[in-house]
Nucleic acid binder design. Sequence first.
RNA 1: CGGGGCGUGGCGCAGCUUGGCUUAGCGCGCUUGCUUGGGGUGCAAGAGGUCAGCGGUUCAAAUCCGCUCGCCCCGACCA
Length: 574
Amino acid sequence: MKWSETLIPTLKEDPSEAEVSSHKLMVRAGMIRKLLSGAYSYLPLGTRVLNKVMAIVREEMNRAGAVEVYLPVLQPVELLEESGRVDVFGQDLIRFQDRHGRLMALGPTHEEVITYLVRNEINSYKQLPITFYQIQVKFRDEARPRFGVLRSKEFLMKDAYSFDVDEEGLSRSYEKMYHAYCRIFQRCGLDYIPVEADTGVMGGEVSHEFMVPSEIGEDYLVRCKGCSYSVNRERAEPAPLPPERDGQSALGGVQAVSTPKVTTIAQVSSFLGVTPKNMVKTLIYKAGGEAVAVLIRGDHEVNEARLARVLGQGVSLADAETIFNLTGAPVGFTGPVGLPIRVIADQAVSVLQNCVTGANKADTHLINVNPGRDFQINNVYNIRYVTQGDRCPRCGEELIISHGIEVGHVFKLGTKYSEAFNARFLDPQGRLRPILMGCYGIGINRIIAALIECSHDEGGIIWPPNIAPYKALVLPLNVKDKTAFQTALKVHDELEGAGIDTLLDDRDQRPGVKFKDADLIGIPFRVVLGRRFEEAGEVEVQCRQGGEKSFVTSQGVVAEIKRLLEKFRGLSHG
RNA sequence: CGGGGCGUGGCGCAGCUUGGCUUAGCGCGCUUGCUUGGGGUGCAAGAGGUCAGCGGUUCAAAUCCGCUCGCCCCGACCA
């Protein structure tokens, strides 16, 4: 392809709206342009990368035995009502009425649609197992689209759904997808980490997220320095903390102190001169109809997903009025002493001594409060988020917390949707049984953004050959030099002929402009025809990554690039 | 959805505080001609703007006031 015959509008300056490098670079390299907040047009270069990623995904899905389908974007809202997910998606669901007044939604995902299909089409064990997949656009009306293509309202997703007769079958299907995902991310050149994950909105029991470590990631991953423990933040469970001191000798007597208008942990901490580690936050949650007190150390945060899990139901923070009615004090002065409701404590609270709590009285806190002596704990659980310094629950080594970009997620759903939709099959004994489901998602756009986030330098993007928009860029420095230009054309054609997709920069621009653009759009291998070609008939082949250069004759370019591709493949990104 | 910021040719910005010396300016990009040819060449001539929209104040509004819309950031939210 000639540069002059496609559209690659590169920019010298960063777009003002972009914050993160992947977003800046995708815009500057002429890959994308914003249409509206959370929706981007892909220009030719961006589209080529999308297609390359999708081709890899298709190959690996097919290799894993999944079969491709194409489900409608348009979904009747009733379908999502059947599974109870209209409320789950809430505002994120894009809804409207068609001309007949029927409520429609733009698919945020497709569990319902596929299960509806399967309920009607699959009714025998002979048709199982089977895994369907599609690559298709999804819509979620994100409250706050961010980071360009990383979190948008409209995005491409590869979603797959497996259907099995029993748990073992489901596990086999799950494993297959898991391994296919590993191959996909590896082929895309991503350094990814699979982590155990919470199942969240999807329901089900087992789940893994595929994370790409990155400062800008909106998710957290928790890994152990010593063993293979790696989980996401919701799922992470710190090792229990040891008791602060032993014996009862050091226990002081409870004392009320006046703390006028001092409500937050930070304020109380500096007002009383105590560390947040020695304070207890008392949060009133509503779980079902019941109010419960949840105790958490001052420097910790409640993991609501875990709390909901241990309580077996959804939870939400109580409002100020409820708190006042229960405790007799405004928000900010709640404490466990004398509270007439169920008290749940995080493990870290249960080992505290002489701590500070609210007094259930306005403008007052209590000091020297001790669990067990001054108040009873009904249940002790691990309900806090892991913090820096926490230890691994498996081996006791230190845990590392870092940010990550979620590029894929796999779930064992079990029978959640098949039961909701009555998707059942007849087993060999003629019994009707629910189908076991798994679902598996990959964010196509996110793969691209995550890759750029991890693979760029000051000059621009550094593509791995597998997903680069073109593998090679032929760069005649002076297009008015007829011989050089003709040779460049020939080299381009030969590369294309050898199956190496190639871009020819045929623009009448200064060398500096061409080099800068070449670096920006990040094509892995660059073939330069310049002074050296005029003088000695040699062309220069250079790698974007590492900058390694070699000089060959124009006839030797194809072989040289094939050699470099081989070498690259051998290195890491098979 | 709460808090903050911004909106001026395709892109990045100045001008707004203190309304009128602006026929709205600068850099990049774009067009034409010449020049140059290994890291964003130089010169010259040009094209391109309802100053987000609506309403108000005023002799006079990009500039002051109000409303609306859009965009970005922080938070809440989020396969």
